[in-house]
């Protein structure tokens, strides 16, 4: 990892050293530094306090800080590991690490399970699945009759609920994803491999040599 000696003072609450974050994620130190540039941009877009608020995530995703959405809320909640209403830099990097092309598939499957376990019961339940289907239909202005929605939910649920106990557990979810790998397509962001190109401003000032 090399010898790290920071000359910079990071006063941002929740800031963690790139060397520490790189050791715990698929990112290199340079990539973590580049992510800090992105983090600074996002965390100052509405409230300039070095923390990402929900409105700032909504602004980044929708170009509208007031647009609420079930899935954006879930993404925010999963990134906000400490559940204190904001995303800190360390939380941001560790969560994005799951989206890295080199992150373990197991982590991606686990993340999607938690994403869809809306009420955090440890299971994806039929009502949650229907709620998410209705949310995507509403979001996309797509009209489907309730009968069609029920049929889609029933079919999917019976395919995934191998034990037939009315809920999808993590093991069943893993099996279902293995049969339908496109379900974790959103969990890989190719951009993360090029993050140092997207946010290169740090390169001239970086103080750490990557070990890779």
């Amino acid at each position: 990892m090399g010898c790290y000696h920071s000359k910079r003072t990071k006063e941002t609450p929740g800031y963690e050293e790139p060397t520490v974050l790189a050791a715990e994620t698929p990112f290199t130190v340079s990539e973590v530094e580049a992510l800090y540039e992105l983090f600074k941009k996002l965390s100052s877009s509405v409230i300039d306090d070095g923390l990402i608020h929900k409105e700032e995530l909504q602004l980044a995703l929708f170009r509208n800080k007031n647009r609420r959405n079930l899935f954006a809320d879930r993404i925010f909640d999963l990134f906000d590991v400490k559940r204190n209403g904001v995303i800190e830099f360390g939380e941001f990097v560790r969560s994005l690490g799951v989206f890295h092309p080199n992150a373990p598939v197991e982590d991606k499957i686990h993340f999607t399970f938690r994403l869809y376990d809306l009420r955090q019961t440890g299971f994806i339940e039929r009502e949650e699945l229907k709620e998410m289907v209705l949310a995507i239909l509403h979001e996309s202005d797509l009209l489907l009759s309730d009968d069609v929605v029920e049929t889609i939910v029933d079919k999917t649920f019976s395919d995934a609920d191998l034990k037939g106990d009315g809920k999808i557990d993590p093991e069943e979810w893993k099996e279902f994803v293995s049969k339908n790998p496109s379900l974790i397509k959103n969990m890989t962001l190719p951009y993360l491999k090029d993050i140092t190109l997207a946010f290169p401003s740090f390169v001239l000032s970086t103080e750490v040599e990557d070990s890779e």
Partner: peptide, 28 residues
């Protein structure tokens, strides 16, 4: 077991949500 080729998987439908595509975070 028989399959229903014309029926979209509910999770595939959910995955179409733009909110689940975080690439928007990287747009300048």
């Amino acid at each position: 077991s028989p399959k229903s080729p014309n029926l979209i998987n509910a999770f595939q439908l959910i995955g179409m949500s733009s909110c689940l595509d975080l690439s928007g975070l990287f747009e300048k």
